[in-house]
Design a protein around this nucleic acid. Structure first.
Lengths: 222, 222
DNA sequence: TCCACGAATGACACTGCGTCAACTTTGCCG
DNA sequence: CGGCAAAGTTGACGCAGTGTCATTCGTGGA
């Protein structure tokens, strides 16, 4: 048998020691169990023990990987943020008009949210009426990046010289709140949500998409 | 001594039985203690026992008044919502233009938030990076009322016939997120925040207040 | 083959939870 | 005023979750 080239990225198990493999596997097991339990019980109601029980591991093992349920939650959040942040940044970097900047941001965000319901729902939907949002380092960095992108766009003359901090906050607020409503609707229409948000930022209330005078129930209304 | 008229509202202690008085007092004691403890430790980190300890009462007594810390939190929130909701509604009811509707809403909200920092801070600022928002019945009713006011305004021809649900969500998102940023600034300028939000909704990004080209540090920039 | 070290285990001491039987206070009646 | 029923308060208790750590296990190097 001649030795063939094997991609170490595709088959890490052949190159990592058994120890490393188990460690990576355990971490994933915990995160996966946590996602399930958070989704089922809500963040507030789940205990570290609930997560452990959803796992074949012993309680002590959990603490080899995470200090608390907060840390698990943060890891889950960071995973999401890490996935979406580059896409958002790229979208905005290549924008040549305000509209492209805004629409690229909202479209990308809403599409991600819709594709990631397991995470996003588990994250924002919580027991009863209690909603939890964790601004992890990665997420804060994402906000910061939006602000910097806005400042760059202002410097380029793309945007008028407005308060970038407040504008960032407004974009974040609309993005999260609209995402919430969007997910609650029967048909999740990311385009409609993105169109709404973009129109608002481009021209205010007067520019928003207009609904049909008497909309039949369930009409998209974009 | 001739019997004099005494206003029962001003001196409820003279008209309520001792039982009723103690009950009202205990409830207030618990809420006050909870406000302090939430502010100090953050919502996530405080325990029912922490609240009880900040009170002269026994643990069993706490449970005569509230089922859990969630319920205490909800009561605190509802108190706030109950105070601000009529003001917001009134402001919008008397609006004769879109601008009055929007600016009245934001101005009232930001002014309330600034005046109520003890509550609002304790509520939104939490341990580490974990932020908690509880949509209590009273708060949800407030959102609903905003949506209805929007629909009424649309019916009156004040607003174009847009998606009232999304517009409500956008207003709520901007209000909460801007409030957060506003409170973090050195000088809390409710007018500037309201002006920013109003301009955004009236004309989008292009209508936002423009900052001085090279702003000296600390300039309000409204 | 052996053994040293890192990782997994689960029993343990501790803290918070919500309950409830015993006690205290209030308001009412004769 | 004394006595009593109902309402409210108390804190000890059983139970569940927390994080730790001495012990055990298994991998990987010699």
């Amino acid at each position: 048998m001649s030795p063939e080239y094997i991609d170490p990225i595709a088959r890490p198990d052949l190159f990592l020691g058994k120890r490393e493999q188990t460690k990576a596997q355990n971490r994933q097991r915990i995160l996966e169990a946590a996602r399930q339990v958070f989704a089922e019980l809500g963040y507030g109601a789940t205990t570290v023990r609930d997560i452990i029980r959803a796992t074949p591991l012993a309680s002590g093992t959990f603490y080899n990987y995470f200090k608390s349920k907060e840390e698990v939650f943060q890891a889950i959040q960071d995973e999401s943020a890490l996935r979406i942040r580059p896409r958002l940044h790229e979208e905005r970097a290549k924008a040549e008009t305000i509209e492209q900047f805004i629409t690229g941001t909202f479209r990308t965000f809403f599409e991600y949210v819709a594709s990631d319901q397991s995470n996003f729902h588990a994250i924002r939907r919580n027991t009863d009426t209690l909603r939890v949002r964790m601004d992890t380092p990665e997420i804060i960095a994402g906000f910061q990046e939006l602000r910097e992108d806005l400042e760059k766009a202002i410097a380029k003359g793309l945007f008028p010289p407005v308060d970038a901090d407040y504008l960032m906050a407004a974009i974040v607020g609309v993005a999260f709140e609209l995402a919430e409503r969007m997910l609650r609707r029967d048909i999740v229409d990311t385009d409609a949500a993105a169109a709404f948000a973009t129109a608002l930022f481009m021209g205010g209330v007067h520019a928003l998409p207009v609904l049909a005078p008497i909309a039949p129930p369930g009409s998209g209304g974009a």
